[in-house]
Simulated scan of single mutants.
Amino acid sequence: MKKYPYFYSSLPVISEKNIVDLAKVISSKIAGNIPFEGLENYIYDEVPAIYINSSILGFEVILKGYGGAKGYYLDVSSHPSNNEPDNMNEIDIDIDITRYIASLLEGTPEIKIKYKEIKSKDYISIIE
Rank of each mutant, 00 (worst) to 15 (best):
K17H: 11
K116D: 14
L39A: 07
I62S: 01
N53M: 02
G68N: 15
E37Y: 07
Y115P: 01
E90Y: 04
G65E: 00
S120F: 02
E46T: 15
H79N: 14
K24A: 08
I127Q: 11
Y44C: 07
T98Q: 10
N41C: 05
I101N: 12
L11P: 00
Y4C: 05
Y66S: 13
P48V: 11
G65D: 08
S10R: 05
I101E: 00
P80Q: 08
Y6R: 09
I14T: 07
I30R: 05
P35N: 12
N33T: 09
S54Y: 04
I34N: 03
P109E: 03
P5G: 08
S81C: 02
K3H: 12
L74D: 08
I91A: 03
N87Q: 09
P80V: 10
I95P: 01
D75V: 11
V13F: 00
V76R: 00
K29R: 06
Y8S: 14
S125K: 15
K70L: 11
K3E: 13
P12E: 05
A102Q: 01
K112A: 01
E110M: 11
S10T: 14
Y4L: 03
N87C: 03
E90W: 04
I111N: 00
D92E: 14
E40V: 09
I43L: 15
L74A: 04
M88F: 06
I19F: 01
P5S: 11
F7I: 13
T108Y: 10
L63A: 01
I26S: 04
K29A: 04
S9N: 08
I111M: 13
L104I: 00
L105N: 09
N41L: 10
K70F: 02
V47Y: 06
M1C: 14
T98H: 03
S55M: 08
I127P: 02
I91C: 04
V20I: 12
D45L: 10
G32A: 09
I52Q: 02
V13R: 00
D75F: 08
M1P: 06
I127S: 11
G67T: 04
L11V: 05
N82E: 08
N18K: 05
P48L: 07
K116R: 10
A23M: 01
S125A: 05
